[in-house]
Design a protein around this nucleic acid. Sequence first.
DNA 1: GTCTATATTGCGATAGAC
DNA 2: GTCTATCGCAATATAGAC
Lengths: 200, 200
Amino acid sequence: MSDNDCRATLMTIATPLFAQKGFHGVSVRELAKAADMNLSMISYYFGGKEALYTAVLNEQFATLGQVAEIKSLALDPLGKFERYIHSTVERYRKNPYLLRFYTSELTNPTPSFELIVKPAIGRVLLVLHQIFTEGVAAGQFRRELDPMDTILALAGMINFYFLLEPVTKELVNHAPERDEVLVKHLMDIFTRGVAVSIDS
Amino acid sequence: MSDNDCRATLMTIATPLFAQKGFHGVSVRELAKAADMNLSMISYYFGGKEALYTAVLNEQFATLGQVAEIKSLALDPLGKFERYIHSTVERYRKNPYLLRFYTSELTNPTPSFELIVKPAIGRVLLVLHQIFTEGVAAGQFRRELDPMDTILALAGMINFYFLLEPVTKELVNHAPERDEVLVKHLMDIFTRGVAVSIDS
DNA sequence: GTCTATATTGCGATAGAC
DNA sequence: GTCTATCGCAATATAGAC
């Protein structure tokens, strides 16, 4: 197996294990066994368990970079927010373990939190904040709204929906076929919530 | 020290440690040292590390029981939702570690998830669902809204706000003095988002 | 590059003295 | 009830053979 195959295999195998059990919940023995490799390969290819975890986390959070591209799309602010929600759903579908790393690092931070997670989330919030400011300037959103409270509310709606999946599995249909409907519902609530009223 | 003092001390000391580092991130030696006790006291009083964790988790999630009381208050549905948001903020203030156990169990579940966490959250969602249904029947909320999507959006706004605190510490004022304003902002967005329009 | 074997440290739990 | 001492095992990491 080539260098790169081994590294990639280890990361692919490690991703769901770290995501589901947390950094301290997985041992190098378990990782090596799952990847069908000798446990010394983790040190050989990455330098240790923590370095493997950092590599996985970096890969996961790199996908958040797409959010910045929304800023420069040819859409009005509401359209950009819809794109944010839509792309967030899509990202969680393509990347079923991202949210677990996200919340795990927020709740039980490792040294990677300050280096990787916090800056990545910060950049997303910055983009959302800029979109909101744009919408206020365009007279689309109510001026009296607090920008940060508002964009955190938007981000909370969609992220919490996925975070609660282990609890709501039997209560709501989490099939990807319903994603478009979900996006529509959340945008419906958010749009009416923040838009300037017709009679003002 | 009496039986009950020892048990209570251990739980008080264990709560922030388990919350910040996760179950696997804390050792019985660390717990005993922090509580200034011999490590064998954990087994003596609780039967082991896992039983101590379960006791802490039980205590934490018992506070969610208050939500059920909202259902029978003499308030209209919107007033009950405001009470839910308000009491959630208050609960996180009084209980700074609850949200960490909440998300930690959702992300990296222990055996306690099915026994304690999932039922407790399920009961909260049930109450919110009932309040929403009540509001639809009263003609206060739009019929076309999906009840589950809507209440998850509401819960997401407030819970995600606190979950992101480690990232937004420098961006938003997290002082309790601003809590009332935050509740007002979120209710403002939610109310306009779900209420039946004036002209219909 | 991949293996075995092992060094070292830490873990949770408990037996038994007091 | 509280202590010390220790058991048995698992952890990460690495030295060295091939």
